[in-house]
Amino acid sequence: MSSVEIVPFNEDYVEAAAALVAARYWAERELGNFLLPAKFEEAEAIVPILQDNSERTTGVAAIKEGRLVGFATGLMTMHQEARTAYIPDWGHGAESSDRWGTYRLMYADLASRWVANGYFTHVVTFFAHEREVADAWFSLGFGLENIDALREVGPVEGTMAGVEVRRANLEDLEVVIALTLATRRHLTTTPAFRPLFDHEGVEYYKQQLSDSDIVWWLAYQDSEVVGGMRIVPSSKRNFVLPVADESTCAITMAFTKEKERNRGVGTALLKHSLDWARSAGYKNCAVDFESANIPGSRFWLKNFQPVCYSLVRRLDERIAWAHGNRNEINFLR
């Protein structure tokens, strides 16, 4: 039996790689995620994505008997202020004969190059029902960090608080900034512990509030703002394949003050967001959230169906100098 050879990924492998991604996507829809747009079941829809990102990625191909049996390609980016190598949902695939082993071999090759170039945070995204793919990444030391989820823009179930919900405008600039910062402060707490870095400037929020395609909803209780939610077209963000469709909008910020949680404020905001989305012609709504955000994940998983999981591995940066090729004299000091 011939072994798998790991070689650099190049344009010669694009069509075969696209076919692997399309096959994964087709399998995901067959398992019940029928809200996913059907267009990505065709390799022709994946080819331009791989081509358009070729200059931004570094990748490998798994070759067996002269044929592509797997590939993985990563974007060099920043994640939480850290140099990060990110393998998106459209950036990997492997045949079923030894999918687990092929992923492990491909990552071993990629990781050595990433670490050599100072990328110690590694992230990968895959579809929600890819159990074997998940097992391969878990076996390599990755852990769950983010969930992408989807739902139709139909009626919302659950108790709704007796709050007034209205659309924000430029006069609400300070309120919108405060709610966004409150969201980020919440994510610094246990068990998420997401560091709080400088956030966008005032001009960013002015542009957001002036964009007719972006809607901020504010919830008021006795004239006090108790929560907010932002909803945007999926074209405004770089989204995963299951939500990359003109008929899909996305919630990209949501927050309820701690004292008002579990009273239906979030449900009321979600209802207004989906009512607006439906009137604007959208069919589906997406959201992504940190899995370690306990109140947030509880709310989103009640109302949305997961379509993608993102795992992260953060390496000990001391490996840059505390490696196996160190001069032995260093151990004697």
Rank of each mutant, 00 (worst) to 15 (best):
Glu5Gln: 13
Asn117Lys: 08
Asn117Pro: 03
Gly296Asn: 09
Gly201Ile: 01
Pro155Ala: 10
Asp316Ser: 03
Asp211Pro: 02
Arg83Cys: 08
Val14Trp: 12
Tyr282Arg: 08
Leu50Glu: 06
Glu55Lys: 13
Met253His: 15
Ala219Trp: 12
Glu224Asp: 12
Asp213His: 14
Ser210His: 02
Ser96His: 11
His122Met: 09
Val4Gly: 04
Glu44Arg: 15
Asn327Phe: 00
Val21Gln: 05
Asn53Arg: 09
Asp148Asn: 13
Asp213Thr: 12
Leu332Asn: 04
Tyr25Glu: 03
Thr125Gln: 13
Leu35Tyr: 03
Leu144Cys: 01
Ala280Asn: 11
Thr189Phe: 05
Ser297Val: 12
Arg261Tyr: 00
Leu75Trp: 10
Asp198Asn: 08
Cys285Asp: 04
Val165Gly: 11
Arg237Met: 05
Gly101Ser: 12
Ala244Asp: 11
Ala94Asn: 07
Glu28Val: 00
Asp89Ala: 11
Ile63Tyr: 08
Ile251Pro: 11
Pro306Gln: 02
Phe40Lys: 05
Ser310Pro: 03
Thr77Gly: 02
Gly143Asn: 07
Gly154Met: 03
Tyr13Val: 00
Ser297Thr: 14
Phe9Ser: 11
Ser96Leu: 04
Glu164Asn: 13
His186Met: 12
Ala23Thr: 11
Gly266Glu: 14
Asn146Ala: 08
Glu260Cys: 12
Ala82Arg: 15
Val133Lys: 06
Ala94Val: 03
Phe299Trp: 15
Thr102Leu: 10
Thr256Lys: 00
Leu218Cys: 09
Pro88Met: 04
Ile6Arg: 08
Thr121Ile: 10
Ser297Asn: 06
Pro295Asp: 09
Thr73Ile: 09
Leu269Asp: 05
Ala244Glu: 07
Thr248Tyr: 01
Ser235Arg: 07
Glu157Cys: 03
Ile294Ala: 12
Arg185Asp: 08
Leu35Thr: 00
Met76Thr: 06
Glu203His: 06
Leu241Trp: 05
Trp321Val: 09
Gly93Leu: 01
Met76Leu: 15
Asp275Ser: 13
Ala108Ile: 06
